[in-house]
């Protein structure tokens, strides 16, 4: 079994933390893993993406081929659409619904939401609002991971919860609890 995830967002939104948690869970579950990140110039408020590949068998390429991703997991709706050519025939898009507008020519929002809604397998949520309601505004990325957990057969929600504890453990119990709360809210679709 293999799962290829295209992680997307805007520099500073915390996509690498999502990758770290999934990576930790995959390692603990004994899966093979490759995770290609973007460092350097692209991080300054520009689009960022990371290719995350999990498999029970050895993985060759660090990059996901076009038409190969099982999931596009995005912190931002337009960034989810950017990687559509990578989405596989049965692939799912899991995304934040709230645009992050830091460019003058951001596309028409209604058209953008319609294009997302037209996808066969797509789930979106205003993860920032959910995280804010939970009094954990910095945990929006874990809400998104919770949403993704519904569609990740290769890892169980408990694998991911354990990984959240490990990854955020050194930041203190409050941070761990906030992130778990956010993850559960995303998972339950609240």
């Amino acid at each position: 079994m293999k799962t290829d995830i295209k992680l997307a967002g805007v520099g500073g939104q915390g996509i690498l933390s999502i990758a770290t948690v999934i990576g930790q869970a995959a390692t603990a579950a004994g899966l093979h893993l490759k995770q290609a990140e973007v460092h350097g110039m692209s991080q300054r408020g520009g689009d960022v993406q990371s290719d995350l590949r999990l498999s029970t068998d050895p993985i060759h390429s660090d990059l996901i081929p076009q038409g190969g991703a099982d999931m596009i997991l995005s912190m931002e709706p337009m960034e989810a659409l950017r990687y559509l050519p990578y989405l596989g025939p049965e692939g799912t898009v899991v995304t934040s619904s709230k645009p992050f507008v830091n460019i003058p020519d951001y596309p028409n929002e209604i058209a953008l939401q319609e294009e997302l809604d037209a996808l066969p397998r797509m789930t979106k949520m205003d993860i920032d609002a959910v995280a804010k309601d939970l009094m954990a505004p910095r945990s929006a990325n874990m809400v998104l991971l919770g949403m993704a957990a519904r569609h990740l057969a290769i890892l169980s929600p408990d694998d991911l919860r354990a990984a959240i504890r490990t990854v955020f453990g050194r930041k203190g119990e409050k941070v761990v609890e906030d992130n778990l709360k956010a993850f559960d809210a995303g998972y339950e679709g609240l």
């Binding site: 337009m78 960034e79 950017r82 559509l84 989405l87």
Partner: peptide, 13 residues
């Protein structure tokens, strides 16, 4: 299998 989206704009650093 999916064509590039229409609602896209470059987001430079």
């Amino acid at each position: 299998v999916h064509a590039p989206a229409h609602s896209l704009a470059p987001r430079p650093p």
